[in-house]
Amino acid sequence: MPLPLNYTLDQKVGEGTYAVVYLGKQTLTGRQIAVKQIKTGGFKDGLDMSALREVKYLQELRHENIIELVDVYATPENLNLVLEFLPYDLEMLIRDREVIFTPGDVKSWMLMFLRGLHHCHRNGILHRDLKPNNLLISPSGSLKIADFGLARSLGLPDERLTSNVVTRWYRAPELLFGSIHYTEAVDVWAAGIIFAELMLRTPYLPGADDADQLIVTFKALGTPTESNWPGVSNLPLYDSIEVFSQPSRQELRNRFLAATEAALDMMSQMVELDPSKRNDTTGLLLQKYFVEFPLPTEPELLPKRTKKET
């Protein structure tokens, strides 16, 4: 049977510059799937880069907390990625005021998120676009990391990475300073900001533009200096802008009223300014935060989205 006939496309759910997304079914099993149809015509450079990245990395990664690439097939006009069907994302839940998060819910999401991220990192893959609306939720409540359009694997030290990655609000300070040799720590930073956002229910560091992002970030977490981040002044875009002092523990407690001490410990280790002091996913999963009370909520019992997509 030719590949396209293995799947039916039932309903168009979204369209971007490079792709159209359909809901459909696997004809053989009846399993619900999503098909991302990449437009190939009209671009003189050929196939869009992010589609290649997505296929390349999702093929390699198989994990409970990473979106599953079921299949890939080409038609004369299009390249089609058949993905696992995941009805909504974490951002919708954060914005939905009718949904109440308990500390156990936040813990459960962070646990699944970090397990997925740990799997990416141990395979040498950086996601580089972590944000709540790239964290999808399955019908059974599992969190899955999606959208590997900006992902890349770490290569030789002399490869230069572009610093223009990650959505602005979740961008790590070394990226803001234009580093071209960054590490997994940029993903950990984004995860830390998402953790903060889960507790606050509002974006933690919403910068208006790239310059403002530096100010917002350092206002909240202190300005890096040579003493707390050796070598920072050698980064290309480093600029001794306004100096804000490091927030005290008490200020953090006031900002995150419901957080326990272990939760604050974990967050501060994720949003450490100096990337060499930032904890990695292995260290984070072993944090006390995950074993202290309240225990992480079972995925099936996590809050579900109340409103239907309009």
């Binding site: 770490l154 030789l156 030290p157 070394e174 580093s179 071209i180 040799h181 960054y182 590490t183 720590a185 981040w229 050796p230 070598g231 920072v232 050698n234 980064l235 290309p236 100096d274 990337p275 060499s276 002091k277 930032r278």
Partner: peptide, 14 residues
């Protein structure tokens, strides 16, 4: 290249 050090790059990890 001091950018490596400032970005938390560890050669052992490579």
């Amino acid at each position: 290249d001091s950018i490596f050090n400032a970005s938390g790059y560890k050669i052992e990890k490579f």
